[in-house]
């Protein structure tokens, strides 16, 4: 088995420490950071995302894989920066105002990072204006809003209105997700994209960033 294959499989098993060691070993052996990313880390997360979507694996396995992914990317990050590799896109994410639930949001963030996106995490209880100002200041292509409570999901409509008011609707897409959110709700508030799970959210964000 090649070292890239080994990294890919170890990552899928969620063995963070081992992934970190293997990535370092690959670098030492002269494998390019870009190659480790595109031929080992990203394909591994794609498999995880697929399996999660098909209900073959569940939250803890995804979490472990995502952590392993992070450990791996930490090692190659300085090398990627050196060779001028760009992120696949830039996203800001947060749980809307009045809502403190961040487990789903964090999972989405990790899956997005696993797709090679740069993600700015605004945390929980985030006011609509903060999403918009963050997107403007950092040139994000996507704003991603999460809510777990039926009583806080309406804040997402405020985010859409705030983005309109700021005049960024032509260049920033708005994604929504969380247990009470539906495709219809997404349409009714004029958001661009609804994702049913973390893997789907990451795929959708990549597609939105490509434009």
């Amino acid at each position: 088995m090649s070292i890239l294959q080994e990294i890919c499989e170890t990552l899928q098993k969620g063995r963070a420490k081992q992934v970190k060691e293997l990535v370092q070993k690959a670098l030492d052996e002269g494998v390019a950071a870009q190659e480790i990313l595109t031929d080992a880390l990203l394909p591994a997360m794609n498999v995880i995302g697929e399996k999660f979507k098909n209900n073959e694996i569940f939250v803890p396995e995804v979490l472990m894989a995502a952590r392993a992914m992070n450990m791996g990317t930490e090692v190659i990050k300085p090398h990627l920066a050196e060779s001028g590799v760009q992120a696949a896109g830039k996203v800001c994410i947060g749980t809307v105002q009045g809502d403190l639930h961040d487990i789903g949001k964090n999972l989405v963030r990790m899956m997005m990072e696993g797709k090679g996106l740069e993600v700015i995490d605004l945390g929980t209880d985030v006011p609509a204006e903060k999403f918009v100002s963050c997107a403007v200041e950092n040139d994000c292509q996507v704003i991603c809003c999460s809510a777990l409570l039926t009583t806080t999901m309406d804040v997402m409509a405020e985010v859409v209105r705030a983005a309109e008011a700021a005049g960024i609707r032509d260049r920033v897409k708005i994604m929504v997700g969380g247990a009470p959110i539906t495709e219809e709700f997404c349409r009714s508030i004029g958001a661009d994209c609804y994702a049913a799970d973390a893997a789907g959210a990451a795929d959708a964000a990549v597609a939105l960033c490509k434009g």
Binding site: V59, L100, D102, I103, N106, T124, L148
Partner: peptide, 18 residues
Amino acid sequence: LELGGNPLFAENYMMGMF
């Protein structure tokens, strides 16, 4: 104790799904 946003709860919750 508010569990929403509590990192210890999040960890226990996610890993406790096994």
